[in-house]
Amino acid sequence: MSPINYVYLAALLFTIGAAGVLIRRNAIVVFMCIELMLNASNLALVAFSRMHGNLDGQIMAFFVMVVAAAEVVVGLAIIVMLYRARHSASVDDASLMKL
């Protein structure tokens, strides 16, 4: 099996996530699709790391994970706040910056 298969799989998952971000309306599901894209990129980084025989790819994947965790915390707090203000988590309803 060629190592490029891992990269193909990562590209496929990234595409699915990107399509999900465009298609879905629920802000939480949009967020989950972003997580899917980040995970796909992590898979590619880990495969690159093995291809080249050094650990820099794994370190980058680690940093991606940390930043994704921070992003999830802030993003979910924003979604909860939006829900409190508008009683809906749909991205269509959030057309104004203020109520």
């Binding site: 490029i4 990269v7 590209a11 496929l12 595409t15 990107a18 399509a19 465009l22 298609i23």
Partner: peptide, 16 residues
């Protein structure tokens, strides 16, 4: 959106 996703997928796969 589905078309855009498909296009992105084709571009990525072609690039790889």
């Amino acid at each position: 959106a589905a078309c855009c996703g498909l296009g992105l997928g084709i571009l990525l796969v072609a690039g790889i």
